[in-house]
Amino acid sequence: MGNVGAKDVPVLLSPEGLRLDGRRLDELRPIRIEAGTLHQADGSAFVEWGQNKVMAAVYGPREVHPRHLQQNHKAVIQCKYNMAAFAVDERKRPGLDRRSQEISKVIAEAFESVVFAEEFPRTSIDVYIEVLQANAGTRCAGLVAASVALADAGIPMVDLVPAVAVGKVAGQICLDLKKEEDNFGEADLPMALVPQSGRLVLLQMEGHMTEEELGRSLDLGVKGCREIYDRMKAALRERYALTPVAGGAA
């Protein structure tokens, strides 16, 4: 990107109310989810969401490493989110940074509230998320991929965890921001939903919006999550060649 002067700010919303890529305000980017893409992992998934490409692998429950993290009454959930150096325009310095540590932590905590960890005492469930191509919303894409991978790994949990970001762009509340909207917009609000209970297990915000706008954003995000939830279930059914049952959950 380099230096971006004020005059370089793109027109984020057309007079007709369409966004940069022609989407309406409440429209998701195209999303493709594939379960079971890796052979050696216990569960895996690949998510292509707009121009994001994210791979997730789940191992376990297995022996805890390092040992001192072991918990006597439940499994620990360890998550590692990593962005490849080639995932963004300007080469990202590879390895751990504060951003990836934070995202790893919030995603692990989101899963801690849905996984029945007490069923596997003194074990570890390891979740690895690799961002191969980034275009805003990678923590949501990573969480979606990891959630499908957890289901693919046969890990018992309350439900799948769909996630999406809502933001404020050119004064309007928009669903699923892409990179330019994220960079030049006024606010970004990623969230993750447990459809079974309606609880949010991840909610972060950057930027500013009014209380009224926040309320509308949450409603829009929940709607988006439910749409993604259907895609996640479809991906798992495709992997196991299943036909939907009336009222069937995860």
Binding site: D42, P61, G154, P156, A250
Partner: peptide, 30 residues
């Protein structure tokens, strides 16, 4: 698992009703 009188699947699998229990046989996992 059961929440509020409803039974949900906790793993990805096939439903089998064996009164008085409802099982879900996992299709994957360790």
């Amino acid at each position: 698992y059961r929440v509020g009188g409803k039974i949900y699947a906790s793993v990805l699998g096939l439903v089998a009703e064996r009164p008085p229990l409802v099982h879900v046989t996992p299709l994957s996992g360790r």
